[in-house]
Design a protein around this nucleic acid. Structure first.
Lengths: 299, 299
DNA sequence: GTTCCGCATGAATCGATAG
DNA sequence: ACTATCGATTCATGCGGAA
C-alpha cells in the first residue's frame, strides 16, 4: 500500500516543530506516547471511542472495568493539554453489564475527569437505530450510547447553524415508527405553505436539533466494522470546528473520525496502536474523495 | 370532592395491619414519614420522578443539588425496605445544568444507592419526542431523561411479553414473501410431524423492545404539567408487575403513576406532600375508569 | 438502469456446563 | 467455590445479485 502521501510518525520532528507537521497524519503507536510529544493547545476537537472495557481483549489487551478510570486518566490529561482552550472533547462510550449490573466505570470516569479539571458540559445520546439483537430474561437489548462533552472552559466554540436539519429530514430521522398519518400531515403542511409568507417558510426550513442523535451503527458494509457511523463524528466536527481546523482521535480504530474530518475539509490526526487497524484506517481515509480546498475557476 | 372511596392516611392502622390497608391510597404527607410506617417487602414496583434539584423550589422547598444525594438516601433506604425482594425500583431523573455544566448529583446518587445495597441493573433512556423548544449559545435543547432501574437482587420479576411491539416496517415486505415460503415449508413439515413454523411466524408479529422509550411528554392538556406521560409508568408497570400487584410512587405529584396503575388494574399507593397536588392526584386517579377487578358471574 | 429480494452481520448477555 | 468457555436468543440495515 502506498502511504507516501500520508506521512507517519517517522516524518515528524520531535522538537515542537510547525503545528502543520501534525496535520493529516495517521500514526501507528500508543496514544499516550504520541500525545506526550505533541505541542500544547493545538487541537480544535477531540472525538474518540476508546476501547470498551474488556470487550476488545484480543485487540487492545483488554482493560479491566475496575481499572478503567485509572487507565484513562493519564491519557485524558494529555488530551487536555493538546486541546485548545476553547476546543471540545467528545467521548463516545457505554458501560457494559458486569454480573447483572451496569458497571460504574463510566460515571466514575466523569467524576474523575472533572477532578482533573475538565468541565462536563453535556451528555449527548446516540440512539442506535439497529442495535444488535438479543434477548435475556432480565434485560432488553441496548440501543444507546453516551457521547459525553467535556470542555476546558465555559466559553467554547460551537457552530450550531452547521448542524441545523431540514424539517423534513428531521421528521424523517425522528423515527421510522412515525405513523402514516404523521407523514401525510407533514406533506400536507408543505403543500399548504403555498399561500403563506415565503420568507417564513424559508426561515422554518431548518431547525436546530436536540441532544439525541438517531443514527444506525455501520454494519459490515465493507469488510470491517466501525465503532460508529461516519455521521457521528461528522456531526460533532461540523458543530465544533470550521474548515481547516484540526480533529484528533487518539483511538482511531478503522479511521472513521479521520475520514469524516477529511470529508469535511478539516485536518485530522489519528493514533492507532494496532497495526492492522492502522493500515485499515489509512486505507479508509485515502478512500475519501475531497474536492480541492478551493474548487474555483482559475483566476 | 368525595374521596370516601379513596381512604387517606387517617384510615390506616399504624400497627402493621393488613397489607390491603395500604392499597389504592393517595396519602397527603411527607414520604419519609409515611414510608417508615409501612410494612416491609410489600411493594412490587416503585416508579417515581422525585423533585428535580432546585427546579420546584416553590413546590417542595427546593433541594440544593449539592445536597441532593444526602436528601434522597434516607428515602431510598425506606424504599428498599418496603420493596419486595424480587421487585423493581424505577427512578426517572435528569440532572440540571448548573453553572454551564451538567451537575453530578445524579451519577453520585447512582454510586450512593449501590453503596446502600441497591443493584444498578439498567439505565433506560426516555427520549422526549416533542421536547419544548429552546436555544442557547452553547447547548441544544434537552430531549432525554434517565429511567434508572434498581433492584434488591439479581433475580427479579420481569414480564417482557407484556411490552412487545409490532415489528418494524421492514418486516412487512419480508413477511409477505416469506409467508408463502413459510406456508410451503409448513405444509411439507406437517407431513413429517413438525408443525411449529406457522406458530413461529405468528409469534414474530411482535418483537421485544429495546431500552430506549420514545414518548412525547404530556403537554398541558390539563392546567398542570405532569412529570411524565401516563405511558411511561404504564410501560414499566406492565413490564414489572401483574394485575393485582402494588405500585408505589412516593412523589406522586399530579398522580400519573397511580392513574396508570389503576388503569392497568394494579393496586397503587401514592404519597404527595403538597396539598394542591394531592387533591389534583386524587381527582386525576378518580377520573380513570376501570372495570371491576373480578368481572365474573357470581359463583 | 431500476427495483426487488435474500442474506450476512454487528462494541451483547445469560445460564449451563466444564475445568 | 470460582473462573472459563459455549450455545441460544434476536432486530434492522445495507450490500449484492436477480428480475
Amino acid at each position: 500500500m502506498d502511504n507516501t502521501h500520508l506521512p507517519l510518525i517517522s516524518g515528524i520532528r520531535h522538537d515542537n516543530g510547525a503545528l502543520s507537521d501534525w496535520y493529516d497524519k495517521i500514526i501507528l503507536g500508543d496514544c499516550l506516547d504520541v500525545l506526550r510529544r505533541m505541542p500544547s493547545n493545538m487541537v480544535d476537537v477531540i472525538i474518540t471511542s476508546p476501547p470498551y472495557a474488556d470487550s476488545r481483549k484480543h485487540t487492545y489487551g483488554g482493560i479491566d472495568p475496575d481499572n478503567y478510570v485509572q487507565w484513562f486518566l493519564p491519557i485524558a490529561a494529555e488530551l487536555n493539554r493538546v486541546l485548545k482552550p476553547d476546543g471540545t472533547f467528545i467521548l463516545n462510550i457505554k458501560e457494559k453489564v458486569v454480573n447483572g449490573e451496569r458497571h460504574t466505570y463510566v460515571i466514575e470516569l466523569i467524576l474523575a475527569l472533572r477532578q482533573q479539571g475538565w468541565l462536563w458540559t453535556e451528555e449527548f445520546m446516540w440512539h442506535k437505530k439497529n442495535s444488535p439483537p438479543g434477548k435475556w430474561p432480565n434485560r432488553f437489548r441496548d440501543a444507546w450510547e453516551r457521547c459525553l462533552q467535556f470542555n476546558k472552559q465555559k466559553k467554547f466554540r460551537m457552530y450550531q447553524d452547521q448542524v441545523k436539519v431540514p424539517m423534513g429530514e428531521w421528521a424523517k430521522s425522528r423515527l421510522k415508527n412515525l405513523s402514516e398519518t404523521d407523514k401525510r400531515r407533514d406533506n400536507s403542511r408543505v403543500g399548504s405553505g403555498f399561500g403563506k409568507n415565503v420568507s417564513n417558510w424559508v426561515g422554518r426550513e431548518t431547525v436546530y436539533p436536540d441532544n439525541v442523535l438517531h443514527l444506525a451503527p455501520e454494519t459490515g458494509n465493507k469488510n470491517h466494522s466501525a465503532a460508529f457511523p461516519l455521521e457521528l463524528p461528522a456531526w460533532f466536527i461540523k458543530l465544533f470546528t470550521q474548515e481547516g481546523d484540526l480533529v484528533l482521535d487518539p483511538f482511531l480504530g478503522s479511521g472513521t473520525s479521520a475520514a469524516a474530518a477529511r470529508q469535511l475539509r478539516r485536518h485530522y490526526l489519528g493514533i492507532e496502536i494496532k497495526e492492522d487497524y492502522h493500515q485499515l484506517a489509512v486505507s479508509n481515509v485515502e478512500a475519501i474523495k475531497v474536492f480541492p480546498v478551493q474548487p474555483r475557476l482559475f483566476a
